[in-house]
Design a protein around this nucleic acid. Structure first.
Length: 265
DNA sequence: TTCCATGTTCCGCA
DNA sequence: TTGCGGAACATGGA
């Protein structure tokens, strides 16, 4: 599930549970999550340090550390999440990084499929630049004109443009489909051929869908029944027109749409 | 048993 | 050179 709304919920969760606690034990299980970082450097950086603040950009969660002028960066891949718990309990299944605090509580980074990333960054700005991330999709400042300019420079299918992290950061397969459904635009439309009217619908849909998903804690069972998310299988009834939801494929990725509701031109 | 899954990266081709 | 599509990655559930 970890797209922008999920990561925003993780960020708020970390804020509510784990700030300003002293880390005194670091247990790393899956070394492959570290990429270009060594286990030693991660441990030395976190040991007896504390989380000071958090920030999210796209699907990345950045956590500022009190000492060292460094940020811990987490990406959740396809199956990652966070869980804070009292240490007398067993760590959750598939815990890949366990940070224990001096008061006996702990924060677990969980990832079943180990597709996530654990990194260190000097500061958010240079990290965003280094990773070539586009504007965060949830920023209220992402204007209509800016969105139009971004999409006009892209010739591929709208769906692939919308989920391209170097263009706009944070939208993935599921919420990409949801935004297109809301905006009544076909996923295979070419992103440089939208009218201003269509772009306006898309711009409003991005804001609406992300806002509402966050409000519902990014819980798929809590989003409105009128959303496509609740009907992601071929042949399901479209909650808007009653027609049939269909599967499609763009860039090797399967998605869902309503051919009756969503403009193909 | 086979297929599929919300993530990104990397390779080959136009 | 750049952008795009598809395979690969690890693991488990339907």
């Amino acid at each position: 599930m970890p797209e922008l709304p999920d990561v925003e919920i993780f960020r708020r969760y970390l804020d509510a549970t784990s700030l300003h606690r002293t880390i005194d034990d670091i247990t790393l299980k899956a070394e492959r999550l570290l990429h270009d970082l060594s286990r030693k450097r991660l441990t030395e950086t976190l040991d007896h340090n504390r989380f000071a603040s958090t920030l999210r950009h796209g699907k990345y969660l950045l956590v500022e550390l009190e000492k060292g002028g460094v940020w811990l960066v987490l990406h959740f891949g396809m199956t990652g999440s966070l869980s804070y718990y009292e240490k007398r309990d067993e760590p959750p299944e598939h815990t890949q990084l366990l940070l224990s605090f001096t008061d006996g509580s702990a924060l677990a980074y969980i990832s079943q499929r180990k597709f996530g990333e654990i990194r260190l960054a000097e500061d958010p700005e240079s990290f965003i630049e280094k990773m070539d991330l586009g504007r965060d999709a949830y920023e209220p400042e992402l204007s209509f004109a800016e969105l139009r300019d971004l999409l006009r420079g892209h010739r591929a299918a709208l769906k692939s443009a919308l989920t391209k992290q170097s263009l706009i950061a944070g939208i993935g397969n599921v919420y990409g489909d949801e935004i297109l459904f809301r905006a009544e635009l076909a996923p295979k439309l070419r992103s440089d051929q939208l009218s201003d009217e269509q772009l306006g619908r898309l711009h409003r849909a991005i804001r609406y869908v992300l806002d509402k998903a966050i409000e519902r804690k990014a819980d798929p069972d809590e989003v409105p029944r009128t959303w496509l998310l609740r009907h992601r299988k071929p042949g399901a009834g479209c909650p808007r027109c009653g027609g049939e939801i269909a599967a499609y494929e763009v860039s090797g990725r399967r998605g869902y749409w309503c051919p009756k509701c969503q403009d193909e031109t």
